[in-house]
Design a protein around this nucleic acid. Structure first.
Lengths: 139, 139
DNA sequence: TTGCGTGCAAAGGTTTTGCATGGCA
DNA sequence: TGCCATGCAAAACCTTTGCACGCAA
């Protein structure tokens, strides 16, 4: 977990950021990035993908989500719009089928305040995943 | 992510649970378990450790914590005290000091209904851990 | 020119899986 | 007796690292 803050503005960094912006709102894994870029003739070495991704996280331009010990980490470009509005994304993981739901919900966001005010706990939505069953998997 | 709910009560399961109880309050990794049991002449195959650990999580007897993508998962026995009849218990894990808070709170319980009614997601509080910072570690 | 950035391949570490054997109920 | 559980080893998986070369400033 070093701190590979980027000092140069390389083509690879640009391509990567471009792609992340183009899928803004969705979560992608390092593998997704590699696959997509390869298919589009702008391939980047996977080591570089991981290194730049990490540095973008350090720079606060990209968010990193850890869903599960055995799922790859997810990355998401932080839209300056939704960032300004302070929009918070919650993650629900179905233990049945593995599906991941992304929720933007004010009512859920309220629990952050509740936890803070009533329980002196500052919830970090980036690290927190709700586990349960999705529509199709509950029975 | 299969569902290896245990149906038999084997010696291995007992040994594992025994150990987890003995370190109740601390969290241990699968590797810790293997190492400890080997040193104490009650070795269990590592595959079994992983399988039983997962089933104990399914049974709600043990919690699983994912602190970081590249750290091994942590497990912790859930004390039956905080397990009061039918009461719903939420777990908050401080990423700073590792402290684990058990919360019994109706307002939090309400999010289960909310997720179910509005988002068609059935939250499993036994599997879900809230990550963030506790009173002492936020700054 | 100076170092950081890149790419390849290989290593690393955790967790899962295949398969034959053993054990609970 | 019928399954489930176990154990070993090997595989799978994501991610990091070593090293030589390339490139930004």
């Amino acid at each position: 977990m070093a701190n590979p803050r980027s000092k140069y503005n390389t083509k690879q960094r640009e391509v990567l950021l471009e792609y992340l912006k183009s899928v803004s709102g969705r979560h992608v894994t390092a593998g997704d990035v590699c696959a997509y870029l390869k298919e589009h003739g702008t391939a980047i070495g996977q080591a570089t993908v991981y290194r730049r991704l990490e540095s973008l996280v350090d720079e606060g331009i990209v968010n990193k989500y850890i869903i599960d010990a055995n799922s790859p980490a997810c990355f998401e470009y932080i839209d300056s719009d939704s960032h300004a509005e302070g929009e918070i994304c919650f993650h629900c993981k179905c233990v049945g089928c593995g599906r991941l739901l992304h929720l933007h919900c004010d009512e859920l966001a309220a629990i952050i305040d509740h936890l803070y005010d009533e329980h002196s706990f500052r919830l970090d939505p980036k690290r927190t995943v709700f586990y349960g069953s999705c529509e199709n998997c509950m029975n």
